[in-house]
């Protein structure tokens, strides 16, 4: 466990925003649903800053699981997600084990390929592609 206790972050999902369930206490961060918020920068900046704070308080040998099951995300969400994964990549560079579980419908090539691109662009993050039927 980390020294700095940070509250879990839970934001209920809506039709246009994903469910955010960041269980910092068990090092399991989950994003699930659709993402086309009215203001993606506002929606994700809190998520990113709390994640940054959480990662900063971790010991270097900690293992963090990130579960992402987004069925749709618009361009501005994509831009913010790059920032989120950049934080995770930086943490991994500092020695933490970050494992990304990337969920997508087996038929959804767009989401599947986006995951593969994340794997290329953020090589420090362990990548697990999970196709759902």
């Amino acid at each position: 466990m980390s020294n700095v206790k940070i509250d879990n972050l839970h934001i209920a999902g809506t039709a246009c925003t994903p469910e955010v369930d960041f269980r910092f206490d068990i090092h399991r961060l989950s994003l699930k649903g659709e993402s086309y918020p009215e203001n993606a920068a506002a929606f994700y900046s809190r998520i990113i800053s709390e994640t940054r704070e959480y990662l900063a308080g971790l010991t270097p040998d900690e293992r963090v699981e990130v579960h992402v099951a987004l069925v749709y995300f618009n361009s501005s969400s994509t831009k913010m997600l790059f920032g989120f994964f950049e934080e995770l990549n930086q943490a991994a560079l500092c020695g933490m084990r970050v494992e990304l579980y990337w969920y997508h419908d087996r038929e959804d090539d767009t989401i599947e390929e986006f995951g593969q691109e994340l794997h290329i662009d953020f090589p420090e993050i362990g990548f697990h592609d999970i196709a759902l039927d």
Binding site: S75, T78, K79, F82, T110, E113
Partner: peptide, 9 residues
Amino acid sequence: RLIAHSDRA
């Protein structure tokens, strides 16, 4: 990435 993603969408 963004352009490829939105082109595809």
